[in-house]
Design a protein around this nucleic acid. Structure first.
Lengths: 169, 169
DNA sequence: AGAGGTTGGTTGAATAATCAACGAGTATCA
DNA sequence: TGATACTCGTTGATTATTCAACCAACCTCT
């Protein structure tokens, strides 16, 4: 039997090569993310994607972003972001402010404390990214990976598919 | 300010190129997994990694595996797998049996019903993998991605790092 | 002005993942 | 035999994520 059970006959199955690649890709991603998540959790008590949120805020003008923009930047759903920011607010790493020009709006603002936490977490994180990814690949491969990633993102961005999943985006 | 806040001076920061690649990689992974997860959830009500568990069981001799082996194959922690199998058991897709040779052991066995569910889910899933990944890349890129993934996995497997995270592995 | 629709964001319940602790079985070695 | 240590797998509490429902503010068009 093949990797994927065959039922309809009309499906275009994956070739051996594609199958192999898909599995390797899955495993590689898991290994990279497991390592970086573990490192962040260990060294900064930062749960998974929260670091990304802080990074995006730290780069925004004034270290502040509207919730929706922040969600888009972090590829978080609005709901997920709302919960996440609530936790970050409990730790005083982020503060919510009302938006002046749109009274529905909320602005997430990175606090000094939050910035300090991020600054403390960054070196270890970068180090882990090196160990898990960059130092493991040749410069050519890094370039290839960039191009491959860009192609994937581009394909996902448009393709007349349902981009309108209820809450997300 | 750079992407990652600079505090220690001793850190080897990412180059522009590496930074760009890292972010693209993150986003590409999110986009692929978001798409495949959404597809599986929509078409089969299968939460995230559960499909993988069923796949691994379906390929095992006798469609059965010891919990620990299954955990390793799916890169699940023992705890996570235990919970997951409990849910799959509620849906009668998997059954637990005692191991004859080791009385501590449990064997997860894919039921016919579970196999049918997997067979029903597979075509849509494969299709999504094509749309999100394979059809988006050139054959060369598919090959490159395979090699890159293999390098990442190999590096994570050995490197004298702490492979002994409490519960995992 | 106001009806209808859209967007921004939150909430709470349900589900999933992580973490720490545990009991039962096995292995090793005295 | 028994002491010690380790492996197998589960459990319950905590935390994170998803999902559906919702309110309030804005936008458009008449």
């Amino acid at each position: 039997m093949r990797y994927y059970a065959d039922v309809t006959m009309t499906t275009r199955w994956l070739t051996e090569e594609e199958q192999r690649t898909w599995r390797l890709f899955l495993q590689a991603c898991q290994s990279v993310f497991a390592a970086t998540d573990a490192q962040l959790a260990r060294d900064s008590g930062l749960p998974h994607g929260y670091y990304e949120i802080l990074v995006h805020l730290s780069e925004a003008p004034n270290r502040a972003l509207r919730m929706t923009q922040l969600a888009r930047a972090s590829t978080y759903s609005k709901s997920r972001l709302s919960h996440a920011v609530a936790r970050l607010e409990e730790r005083s790493w982020v503060q919510r402010r009302d938006c002046e020009t749109d009274r529905r709006g909320q602005i997430a603002q990175l606090t000094d404390e939050g910035f300090a936490a991020l600054a403390a977490a960054a070196p270890g994180h970068v180090d882990q990214v090196r160990r898990s990814l960059m130092d493991v690949l040749t410069p050519d491969q890094v370039e290839q990976l960039g191009e491959i990633s860009a192609a994937i993102i581009a394909a996902a961005a448009c393709p007349a598919e349902e981009c309108h999943e209820a809450d997300n985006f």
